[in-house]
Amino acid sequence: MSRAALLVLADGRFPAGGHAHSGGAEAAVGAGRITDAESLEAFCRGRLHTAGLVSAALAAAAVLGVPPRELDAAADARTPSPALRLAARKLGRQLTRAARATWPSAELDALAREFPKGAHQPVVLGLAARAAGLEAVDAAYCAVYESVSGPASATVRLLSLDPFDATAVLARLAPELDRVADQAVEAARNVADEGTDALPAASAPLLEIAAELHAAWPVRLFAS
C-alpha cells in the first residue's frame, strides 16, 4: 500500500462534492449557536464524538470487508433525519464517482451498480480506502477529519472567521481525532462477530433537528 494515498483521499480538494456541505454549521450559525472560534470548536467536538464516530466506524468496517448493503442499512438506522440521509447518499454517490475514476476497482463498480443513487458516504469512503490499498484506521481518520474540517471551512465562509483561527481549532482537536479513530476501528473489528449492532450509534439531537429545519430554508448557501 501507499500511505500517501491517504493524503489524496483526505484532501479537501478531492473532487467528491464536500465543498457544498457545511456539516450542520450553516444551520448552527443561523441559529446563533456558532458565533466564533470557541463555539466552532465546541460544535466540532460534539460532531466528532457523534456523527464523526459513527461515520468512522462505518468506514473502517467497510475496509474490513463488511458487506456494503449491511453497513448502508446500519447507517440509515443511525440517521433519523431524512435530510441527512439524503445528503449522505448524494455525497456517497459523488464519492463513488471520484473514487472509481481515481482507484478503479471491481468493488466500487459493484457498489455503483447496487446503489445507483448513492450509498451512505462513510460506506463509500471505506470502499474507496480499500480500493486505494489503505487500512481501516486510515478510513477512520478520513471520516473523523471530514467530520470537523467540513464545518470549520464552511464557518470561515459563513462568518468570515479568521482562517487561522479555524485551522487552530482543527489542530486543537487532533488528539481527540486520534482517540475517536481508534475507538471507531475497535468497534468496526467487532462487527465480524457481533454484526452491525456493534457499531456505535452516538447521536446529536440538535444536528438532526437543525438539519431538518435547514433543509426547509428557502435560501441557503450549503446543501446541508
Partner: peptide, 18 residues
C-alpha cells in the same frame, strides 16, 4: 438546481461531481 456551498466556481471546475 445544484447547490454550490458558497463557491459556484468550485462546482463547475474543481469538483464537478454534483
Amino acid at each position: 438546481a445544484v447547490e454550490t456551498g458558497a463557491c459556484p466556481h468550485t462546482a463547475i471546475r474543481d469538483d464537478i461531481s454534483a
